[in-house]
Measured scan of single mutants.
Amino acid sequence: KFNKELSVAGREIVTLPNLNDPQKKAFIFSLWDDPSQSANLLAEAKKLNDAQAPK
């Protein structure tokens, strides 16, 4: 279960257009550290992506 959630969340995070590479890497490392938090980490990444969207 975690492997699928981890890969789905990881793929989504790397495609978020408004995150820079260090931010993406930080989220990916957090996913590896605790795969059970993949849904929460993906939600946080999406929030940050939205907040950094060009206005």
Rank of each mutant, 00 (worst) to 15 (best):
L16S: 02
A53Q: 09
D50L: 07
S7L: 15
T15V: 09
F27W: 00
D33E: 12
F29E: 15
R11H: 11
P35W: 04
N49C: 04
P22K: 14
F29M: 14
Q52Y: 05
E5N: 09
L48W: 04
K47L: 09
D33W: 09
L6H: 04
R11D: 06
E44I: 09
P17Q: 07
E5G: 09
L6D: 05
S7Y: 14
F29S: 14
K4Q: 12
R11T: 10
D34A: 04
I13T: 01
F27D: 06
I13H: 01
L41V: 12
L31V: 04
P35F: 04
N49R: 01
N18Q: 03
R11K: 09
T15Q: 13
K46S: 04
S38W: 15
I28R: 00
D50M: 09
N18C: 09
G10F: 15
W32E: 09
N49H: 01
E44S: 06
N3S: 11
N40S: 12
Q23W: 02
N49D: 04
L42R: 02
D50E: 13
D33C: 15
S36C: 07
R11S: 07
K1E: 14
K24T: 01
L41F: 03
N20I: 06
D33A: 12
N49M: 02
P54C: 12
T15K: 14
K47D: 06
A9D: 05
Q52H: 04
G10D: 05
D50T: 07
D34P: 01
L42G: 01
D50C: 07
A26C: 15
N20Q: 06
K4D: 13
K46H: 11
L41M: 04
A9R: 04
P35T: 03
E5R: 06
L19G: 00
L16M: 10
F27K: 00
P54K: 08
A26L: 09
N49S: 06
K55Y: 05
G10T: 15
I28L: 13
Q37S: 06
V14L: 14
E5T: 08
A43K: 09
L41A: 03
P17K: 07
N20V: 04
Q52I: 04
A53T: 08
L31N: 03
Q37W: 04
N18R: 01
P22S: 15
S36M: 07
D34V: 02
N3W: 15
D34Y: 03
S38T: 13
N3K: 05
L19E: 00
D21L: 09
P22F: 15
S38P: 02
V8C: 12
Q23L: 03
R11I: 12
E44P: 00
K55L: 11
A43I: 09
S38F: 14
S36R: 05
L48V: 07
W32R: 00
W32D: 06
S7I: 15
L41R: 01
L48H: 02
K55W: 03
N20W: 06
N20C: 11
K24Q: 00
Q37P: 02
Q23I: 05
E5V: 10
L41P: 02
A43V: 08
A9H: 06
K55Q: 11
E44C: 13
A39H: 13
G10K: 11
F29K: 15
A45R: 00
N18P: 00
L6V: 12
D33M: 10
E44R: 05
D21F: 10
K4P: 14
N49E: 02
N40W: 09
A26H: 13
P35Q: 03
F27N: 01
P17H: 06
E5A: 11
S30C: 15
S36Q: 06
P22D: 15
K25D: 13
G10C: 15
K47S: 12
V8S: 12
E44L: 08
K55F: 05
N40P: 04
W32M: 11
A53Y: 05
N18Y: 14
N3G: 14
D34C: 11
N49I: 02
P22C: 15
E12M: 13
